[in-house]
Amino acid sequence: MLVHLRRAVVASVIFFVLLGLAYPFLITGIGQAFFSHQASGDLVAAPRGYLGSSLIGQHWNGPRWFQGRPDTDNPSATGSQNYGPKSKLLLDFARAQVRRLEKEGIKPTNELVTGSGSGVDPDISPHSAYVQVAAVAKANHLSVSAVRRLVTSHVVGPYWSFLGSPYVNVLRLNQSLAHLESATKAP
């Protein structure tokens, strides 16, 4: 019993040093040395500081901008809203999204009326981006075809053409939209 106890304490110390410190420090060292951008959170640089992380969703008010999933987008409290499939809460939530989108002249799609798994989903399906093209083009006084081309150029994946689903990153898309606007408005 006592010999078990002594070994248990020693083993805890060894594994703390090896697995709890050395292993994560090694991966942090390799990650920061070779993949510093990814390892630090895929931050998108702005003139001052950061615009955001391309992996963390933000709230966009339509129709001037493309909108993402109707999430809380709070990276300090991630997670789904956990509404059951036959829950009144979900029914009311989805109805509210449908009303909001229809008011903006956008046809509601699956992702645009449902909460994501992370609560910070940065992406939408290409279909959910295309349905917003007309409204976004009108609000920004841009041609529909130019905005549509912009969306097409931002469609990513699936990985190796079959792992996961194709998607559009909303932050990157809106960043390009801002560039397109300033380019069009320039003399």
């Binding site: 999933r69 789904s80 809203q81 956990n82 509404y83 499939p85 036959k86 829950s87 979900l90 029914l91 989805a94 109805r95 999204q97 449908v98 509601p108 799609t109 699956n110 992702e111 009326v113 449902t114 909460g115 994501s116 798994g117 992370s118 989903d121 992406d123 939408i124 399906s125 279909h127 959910s128 994946g157 996961g164 689903s165 998607y167």
Partner: peptide, 24 residues
């Protein structure tokens, strides 16, 4: 998702997406 269908989005080609991530 039955609640999403009842809210008016009958056509859900992407399946039940409540609580799921777009990229997956």
């Amino acid at each position: 998702n039955p609640a999403v269908a009842a809210a008016g989005v009958k056509h859900q080609p992407g399946g039940n997406m409540e609580g799921k991530e777009s990229r997956f």
